[in-house]
Write a protein that binds this DNA or RNA. Structure first.
Length: 435
RNA sequence: GGAGGGCUAGCCUCAACUGGCAAGGCAGUGGACUUGAAAUCCACCGGGCCGCGAGGCCCUUGGGGGUUCGAAUCCCUCGCCCUCCGCCA
């Protein structure tokens, strides 16, 4: 959520920055300003009347204790009370409409973000590792995985639907090994605290991080007799972890907070029919190790850089080539002010594909969730900045391992750094049914 | 599912008896005192609106509604937390 004060004071600047994301927001901003002006007029009248009512009511109390008649004042205040009731109702209605409009507006892009309309305009900032030269035509992960009997899309579709996967044997083990390797790296070496959270959360929590009210069609949710009890399946651990400190005041000395969580993520993937239908690149359910930070405004951009480096380190240790791009204004997510995507090299596709997205949301989520800090030198509480980044998407990392470590005979070498998590297993070989 | 208890400012507390200016403590900030610190004392210490400013005003006792000149207090309703019983991995 944007700061209404900023919109009021610098509407043109806000409109110009929002316009770089694409889509027309000027009508909404104009309506917002009109509603805000109307609200302040009504509020002022209501407050003046309330001041009078408080004054006179006190006098009535005094007069009656002295046994004097206050009937005239009481009658006059009855009329004032009616007017106050009407004005309060107006203000509340205006507040609701203002909030509804504010909740629809995306975050302002940071000034360092390149302006552009689509992923075409994202800018590569660095590259690491050389894509391996194969002496044979590299296969895709689904070809490899199915041939090895490790990836099973048919049975997954039978017991659920498309866009689900069953991992058998060593692949299931590899998924778990990857997640644990990532968690160990971030907790032992990068200073993150591991948390384990609910995977079903309230509508308010989804509102805090920006998934609601705009993107409900992307979420799975429970069906309850009473709508107020509906719970949503998290599309990323960013949602519950960022919301942990909602409605809290954090002492500045305890910032930044750095958290890591591994959770399943559930996404409807509505509107992606036809995209990435083969294999397990785009799924309704996948595991992700998520990094979340809560910082002061002064810290947040340094922390975005280090968070991105922390995610990159996973790929370096796995020796998987990647590149980092900064998303342009038109390609960024709703809540982000700046986003780096990390894209891993996939030999089966012959291109780099997103495996992590690291964003600074500045105060956008903190304002919705009520995450504030008290400055060390005293003074007014301010909203924190929140950041999140994948460290990494586990399922896609498994894909990258399969495709980058494949051999001519169709087997797959286990990356050395994962072997301690796999009982020393060095190679994925065809699975014997029942084995 | 049943019964009971609770929700007051960043945190804590059966402060507020019969409806009449929301109290105290802790933490924090500033100041006084001090070589420095501790201790002590004073002030500030939720949000919003108006004002260049000094400042002024309004709102805030889980949410919403009602009664009243006036509600933390009385009434209705919803939510959440805790305890016990039942069920349960």
């Amino acid at each position: 959520m944007l700061d209404l004060r900023q919109i009021r004071e610098r509407p043109d600047a806000v409109a110009a920055r929002l316009a770089t994301r694409g889509g027309a927001v000027e009508p909404q901003l104009r309506e917002l300003l009109a509603l805000d002006g109307e609200r302040r007029v009504r509020l002022r009248e209501a407050e003046e009347l309330k001041a009078e009512r408080n004054r006179v009511s006190e006098a009535i109390g005094l007069a009656r204790r002295r046994g004097e008649d206050a009937g005239a004042d009481m009658a006059r205040m009855r009329a004032v009370a009616d007017r106050v009731r009407a004005l309060d109702a107006d203000v509340k209605a205006l507040d609701d409409r203002i909030r509804a409009l504010l909740l629809q507006l995306p975050n302002l892009p940071h000034e360092s973000v390149p302006v552009g309309g689509s992923a075409e305009d994202n800018v590569e900032v660095r590259r690491w590792g050389e894509p391996r030269r194969f002496a044979f035509t590299p296969r895709t992960h689904d070809e490899l995985g199915q041939a090895l009997g490790l990836l099973d899309f048919e049975r997954a579709a039978r017991i659920a639907k498309s866009r689900f996967t069953v991992l058998w044997g060593a692949a299931a083990r590899l998924e778990r090994a990857l997640a644990q390797f990532m968690l160990d790296l971030h907790t032992r070496e990068h200073g993150y605290t591991e948390v384990w959270t609910p995977h079903l959360v309230s509508a308010d929590t989804m509102l805090a991080t920006g998934q609601l009210p705009k993107f409900e069609e992307q979420l799975f949710k429970t069906q309850e007799p009473d709508d107020n009890r509906t719970l949503y399946l998290i599309p990323t651990a960013e949602v519950p972890v960022t919301a942990l400190h909602g409605e809290e005041f954090l002492p500045e000395a305890t910032l930044p907070r750095r958290y890591v969580a591994c959770t399943p993520c559930y996404r409807r993937e509505a509107g992606t029919y036809g995209q990435d239908t083969k294999g397990m690149l785009r799924q309704h359910q996948f595991d992700k190790v998520e990094l979340v930070k809560v910082t002061t405004p002064a810290q947040s951009y340094d922390e975005l850089e280090s968070m991105t480096r922390n995610a990159e380190e996973v790929l370096r240790r796995l020796e998987l080539p990647y590149r980092v791009v900064v998303l342009c204004t038109g390609d960024m997510g709703f809540s982000a002010a700046k986003t780096y995507d990390i894209e891993v090299w996939l030999p089966g596709q012959g291109r780099y594909r997103e495996i992590s997205s690291c964003s600074n949301c500045e105060a956008f989520q903190a304002r919705r969730a009520g995450i504030r800090y008290r400055p060390a030198g005293g003074g007014k509480a301010e909203f924190c900045h929140t950041l999140n980044g994948s460290g990494l998407a586990v399922g896609r990392t498994l894909i990258a391992v399969l495709e980058n470590y494949q051999e001519a005979d169709g087997t797959v070498t286990v990356p050395p750094v994962l072997r301690p998590y796999m009982d020393g297993l060095e190679r994925l070989t065809p699975r014997t049914p029942g084995g």
